[in-house]
Design a protein around this nucleic acid. Structure first.
Length: 267
DNA sequence: ATGGCTGCTTTGAGCAGA
């Protein structure tokens, strides 16, 4: 199973790129963030025509998430579109069960600046998310948590750690949240494998940040132990950030081997 | 040098993103 996440920064603008990317990357499950579309305007027909079923929770202008599931994998069940006990107008959660795998897609709040109300909201939202993930892990051995986390977990995930030290996306409390999710029993799939240095998933549109590789790694695929044991690779598709009208984020893709039930007849 | 780009908005200059 190929599992992917991509902050598309407006699905309206990025739909042609998404439709071109799907047959190349061939994800089985893909979570999208920042669709910025009301549900009535979601391009369901185009995505279904590309061979995917899709669930979504959107709103006008901001936020909005979706989960695409390749038709051959069947129907995703137990769809959730909110954090339990955390009433929120902002559409940042999409979760579904595909076969035996539970996939949670997050668009974690950006936080704007560490002294802002939006930062407080980010920490509160993440606290509610922690409880949700604790519960999900208790129910699902095969759990994947993917999305735009808006957290660069370590200095090596930042092009210029001194410049970003203590800033939003890199602050101590944000990194503590990332570690707390790891402590729950989730592994950063990207770090299960040797990776090129200075691999990032987001680059600012300004200042030629992408050609200069001035980026951050803030998009992630976390895996429960059962899935991490089956994971054979994780990469960031830098090519998707190139060319005309790219999203400022690149997709992250993890390969998860098939679940193989124990067979006592096997030698 | 505190901007720089991009997408969105009851169309416009202002917000938000990260």
């Amino acid at each position: 199973m190929k599992l992917a996440t991509w902050n598309v920064n407006s699905l309206n603008v990025r739909l042609p790129r998404l439709l071109a990317w799907l047959p190349v990357a061939q994800p089985d499950v893909l979570c999208l963030q920042e669709t910025k579309l009301e549900d009535a305007r979601f391009p369901r027909g185009e995505i279904e025509a590309a061979g995917y079923r899709v669930h979504y929770a959107g709103q006008k202008t901001y936020n909005g998430v979706a989960m695409l599931v390749r038709e051959a994998l069947g129907i995703a069940t137990d769809i959730a579109t909110a954090l339990p006990g955390y009433p929120d107008e902002q559409k940042r959660v999409i979760a579904g069960t595909v076969g035996t795998t539970r996939v949670v897609g997050f668009y974690v709040p950006n936080g704007q600046a560490v002294d802002s109300d939006k930062y407080r909201y980010k920490l509160d939202w993440c606290a509610a998310a922690t409880e949700f993930l604790r519960d999900q892990l208790a129910c699902h051995a095969a759990l994947a948590v993917v999305g735009d986390f808006n957290i660069a977990p370590e200095d090596r995930d930042v092009h210029d750690p001194a410049l970003w030290a203590g800033q939003v996306l890199c602050s101590g409390p944000e990194r503590a949240i990332f570690r707390a999710w790891q402590t729950l029993g989730l592994k950063d799939s990207f770090r299960l494998f040797a990776q090129p240095e200075k691999t990032f998933s987001w680059w600012d549109y300004r200042q030629l940040a992408f050609p200069r590789n001035h980026g951050l790694r803030i998009d992630h695929i976390l895996l429960s132990d059962a899935l991490a044991a089956r994971c054979t690779g994780c990469r960031i598709d830098r090519n998707a950030r190139k060319g005309d009208k790219p999203s400022d984020h690149a997709p992250v893709i993890a390969d998860i081997g098939d679940a193989r039930p124990a067979d006592p007849r096997r030698i």
